[in-house]
Nucleic acid binder design. Structure first.
Lengths: 145, 145
DNA sequence: CGTATGCTGAGAATGGTTCTCGTTTTAGCA
DNA sequence: TGCTAAAACGAGAACCATTCTCAGCATACG
């Protein structure tokens, strides 16, 4: 893992100040943040970033292996630092999503051989259980849209 | 699991003909289908469904525990029958997604206790490894948008 | 029949994300 | 310190899958 080992390795790309700012906000937050939330927090902290820039740099950080991303049922993407290894329980009815303190990779039962990956370079993984939350089980399940 | 055991259990709801048609197309397909693709296939098979109906019934089937759903990086949702337990390798750069023949739940290393679920009723799970596909590792990683 | 209830679908609305493109900043150089 | 090329920026427009609206239609039931 020497610096500049491969010229095409994005993880060697030095970060610009906006990217560092973005990453700092994500690391300071105690939960995943959406692009819009990130934009808002940066505005408040006197670091003005355009929305386009926020999304651009979020993509770069993701490809560089510094940020992870997941899509909520409502279509929003939420971001977190790569080193945070959290997974989720998500309701297919109301869309509510809450942390699930378990990780199928960390618990070691998973053999990710090179054969399976076939040249693919893994950066992070998502594990999510979808189902019905307690309150959606109780309420009329399929009524009134 | 007697019929109508619980009036609030969506899995007891009988399917309408449109929902059965939808499920049949999904089961006949050998891959996940998007709402738009489903709509197109139904049009061709003389089963005309409006787009709104396709999405409505897809939501119902999902809540009933018959259909699973996952979001691609481009924002599309793709659907498959619940009984198909496939997972994926997805590139954070180009968005390409391919099957990953491994399942962290089926391989048994995961203890999903009632304590963890806290009243949540699981229907299905998604497991996805995100990273860089072979061709995105080779190409200029961060250049030209 | 007559009414209540739910399902349907064409088209409009929604909203997060991406694109466009002129402007600003940075980098490289003499 | 000026000058130029390349890269980054951001306001606003565009995109597009999905959801919403609402009038019309089907079904159930007395």
């Amino acid at each position: 893992m020497a610096p500049h080992a491969h010229p095409t390795d994005p993880s060697d790309m030095p970060l610009g100040p906006r990217q560092r700012a973005l990453l700092a906000v994500l690391r300071a937050a105690n939960a995943e943040l959406s692009g819009q939330e990130l934009h808002e927090r940066l505005r408040q902290s006197s670091q003005r970033h355009g929305l386009a820039t926020v999304y651009r740099n979020l993509r770069l950080l993701q490809r560089s292996g510094l940020v992870r991303c997941r899509k909520l049922p409502n279509g929003e993407s939420v971001y977190a630092p790569l080193e945070r290894d959290d997974h989720h329980l998500t309701c297919v009815s109301c869309g509510h999503s809450e942390p699930l303190p378990i990780c199928p990779v960390a618990s070691g039962g998973l053999a990710l051989t090179k054969v399976l990956l076939q040249g693919f370079k893994p950066l992070f993984h998502t594990f999510e259980i979808h189902g019905l939350c307690r309150s959606c089980q109780q309420s009329e399940p399929l009524a009134h849209g």
